[in-house]
Deep mutational scan, measured.
Amino acid sequence: MDALKSAGRALIRSPSLAKQSWGGGGRHRKLPENWTDTRETLLEGMLFSLKYLGMTLVEQPKGEELSAAAIKRIVATAKASGKKLQKVTLKVSPRGIILTDNLTNQLIENVSIYRISYCTADKMHDKVFAYIAQSQHNQSLECHAFLCTKRKMAQAVTLTVAQAFKVAFEFWQVSKEEKEKRDKASQEGGDVLGARQDCTPPLKSLVATGNLLDLEETAKAPLSTVSANTTNMDEVPRPQALSGSSVVWELDDGLDEAFSRLAQSRTNPQVLDTGLTAQDMHYAQCLSPVDWDKPDSSGTEQDDLFSF
């Protein structure tokens, strides 16, 4: 819950932080000083300027060897085509990944977070970031790969997607708890209302004896509580940590079903599988986004697919 609360507080303090972009060759504004600060901008989305290598189908939802083989196929196909790589912007948030063309600003792909089953910074092609997700059109699994400016960037994108998945799962947990509370309150309110109706004398007997209905007592009954809980029953509950912020979080049926399955089948359902080692994760978390744009010590960066 700490990640969720800190993310909400950060967004309320400075929503404009989320509009910064990394990996864009110096076009961005001043960047936060450390990885923790940038992680807090996830709610509205972190932007990464990358190059799209392509996509291939895979048979399993996750796995280092599986993704490595898929990336190898994608890279080989991209090299064989001889075409310049498409420059894209990857927007990562707890909602998922939005992929747009840098030149036309046209939407290429919009992947809900619950469809993503794996992401990684490839070991062999260490400047490549990739994720595996279920197609929104059918049940097939797709591996999408992107060329980053350097290994640090690939690791940073991988960690960002993993963190977005974690925050999304926490949102789901909060929403589920809130819905259970509202359902319980609604049920209790309905029981109270039913009890009051059972003990209320029939209207005919009131008229016969000349008694008047006590409207004041009726007004004191917990009807307002019942209506408050039943009027918006169809509205999706939102985490309290975000009250007053500009973010509107809505959970669709697909996300609810997917996270429910994860909660039942996995020990740590909030953790998205990645190909990063503990050492890689520690190294990337210690980086400032400013470091992502620094040239690798191995030599001059080449803006070309064939540089790796």
Rank of each mutant, 00 (worst) to 15 (best):
D2H: 02
L4C: 06
K5P: 04
K5A: 09
A7Q: 12
A7D: 15
I12A: 12
S16W: 12
L17I: 11
A18G: 13
K19W: 13
K19F: 08
S21D: 15
S21P: 11
W22K: 02
W22N: 03
G23P: 05
G25M: 01
G25H: 08
R27D: 15
R27E: 10
K30S: 08
T36R: 11
T36W: 14
T38W: 15
T38E: 13
R39T: 10
L47D: 11
F48Q: 00
S49T: 15
L50H: 03
K51A: 02
K51I: 02
Y52D: 02
L53Y: 01
G54H: 00
E59D: 05
G63F: 12
G63E: 07
E64S: 12
A68I: 02
A69V: 10
A69Q: 11
A69F: 09
I71M: 01
K72E: 04
V75C: 00
A76N: 10
A80V: 12
K84E: 05
K87W: 08
K87V: 11
L90V: 11
K91N: 09
P94Y: 02
P94G: 02
R95D: 05
I97V: 15
I97A: 02
I97Q: 00
I98V: 15
T100D: 05
T100Y: 05
D101I: 01
N102Y: 10
Q106W: 14
I108Q: 07
N110F: 04
Y114A: 02
Y118R: 11
D122E: 00
K123P: 14
M124T: 13
M124K: 06
M124Q: 00
V128L: 00
V128G: 00
F129S: 04
F129E: 00
Y131M: 11
Y131K: 01
A133H: 11
S135F: 06
Q136M: 13
H137L: 12
N138L: 09
N138V: 14
L141C: 08
C143N: 01
A145S: 08
F146C: 10
C148G: 13
C148T: 09
T149Q: 08
Q155D: 13
V157T: 15
V157C: 13
T158G: 13
V161A: 06
A162S: 13
K166E: 14
V167Y: 15
F171K: 10
F171W: 14
V174H: 03
V174T: 01
E178F: 11
E178I: 12
K179C: 12
E180I: 04
E180P: 08
K181T: 14
R182P: 15
D183Y: 15
K184Q: 12
G189H: 05
G190A: 14
G190F: 03
D191I: 02
V192R: 02
V192G: 04
G194I: 07
G194R: 10
Q197N: 11
C199M: 09
P201F: 02
P201A: 14
L203G: 06
L203R: 08
V207I: 12
A208G: 12
L212E: 04
E217Y: 05
T218F: 06
T218A: 11
A219F: 07
A219Q: 11
K220C: 04
A221F: 08
L223P: 10
T225A: 06
V226C: 10
N229C: 07
M233V: 10
V236D: 10
R238A: 12
S243R: 12
S245L: 03
S245F: 11
S246C: 12
S246Y: 13
V248G: 08
V248K: 07
W249A: 09
W249D: 04
E257H: 04
S260H: 10
S260P: 02
S260K: 01
L262Q: 02
S265D: 10
T267R: 06
N268H: 12
N268S: 11
N268F: 01
P269K: 03
Q270H: 15
Q270L: 03
L272W: 03
D273I: 08
D273H: 05
T274E: 06
A278I: 09
Q279S: 04
H282M: 09
Y283N: 08
A284D: 09
Q285M: 09
S288G: 09
P289T: 09
V290N: 12
V290Y: 11
W292N: 06
D293F: 01
D296P: 11
S297K: 10
S298Q: 07
S298N: 15
G299M: 02
E301W: 04
D304E: 09
F306N: 00
S307Q: 07
